[in-house]
């Protein structure tokens, strides 16, 4: 009886494995067919348009074939696979990109996403919902921070140090982008997608 129970248990586990839908679990490092992500937050192409990056509740993913298959990208040994809220690729250098996460702040890669370092100096909170890189001056980025230190922050040295700008757009920020449209006041516009719709503000204050 005990032996039969064991056989059934093993068969049951095997059946579950065979019928389980393709999900992007933290343990899965091999290429996966898409459609199995939890809570996608961000999508971006690198400067050469060769690689796509996707940010989701289960981490960061990279595709080399236009989104047909995805491979998980390890962001941080300390934080595992943080909830990736936003992705900001460098406008000209395909090796440089930044991501903002829900619980571990900003990460920067200078080798196309193979290795990452934290870039949080000056940020009072680590819940980053929007990250915008300036298309004309890529060392300049804006970050929309939620919860602790809620507001808009700016770096002018590629994430070396962040300084608070103001309270930022009203409503929960979902996406933040620097758009190369001159304001006439010496800067360009920041567009923010929020829970209250699309908002536009000059970035020069």
């Amino acid at each position: 009886m005990r032996q039969r129970l064991t056989v059934f248990t093993v068969l049951g586990a095997l059946a579950m494995l065979l019928t389980a839908p393709p999900t992007a679990s933290p343990a899965q490092e091999s290429p996966s067919k898409g459609g199995g992500f939890e809570h996608v937050h961000a999508l971006a192409a690198d400067a050469e348009g060769r690689r796509l990056f996707l940010g989701a509740h289960t981490g960061l993913f990279r595709s080399e074939d236009g989104g047909r298959s995805w491979r998980k990208v390890a962001l941080s040994a300390k934080h595992g696979h943080p909830d990736v809220m936003t992705i900001a690729p460098h406008p000209r250098d395909p090796l440089v990109l930044y991501v903002g996460t829900h619980e571990a702040g900003v990460f920067q890669s200078t080798d196309g996403g193979s290795t990452w370092k934290e870039a949080n100096n000056g940020l009072p909170g680590l819940d980053v919902h929007g990250l915008a890189i300036d298309p004309n001056a890529p060392q300049k980025l804006h970050a929309a921070v939620r919860e602790k230190g809620d507001g808009l922050y700016r770096t002018t040295d590629g994430g070396g140090k962040w300084v608070r700008v103001d309270d930022g757009p009203g409503g929960e920020v979902k996406v933040l982008t620097s758009v190369n449209i001159p304001t006439g006041m010496g800067g360009i516009y920041l567009y923010a997608g929020t829970a209250e719709g699309l908002q536009r503000n000059p970035d020069c204050f």
Partner: peptide, 8 residues
């Protein structure tokens, strides 16, 4: 309505 994504 919530704007989830934006691209230029």
């Amino acid at each position: 309505r919530t704007v989830n994504g934006f691209a230029v």
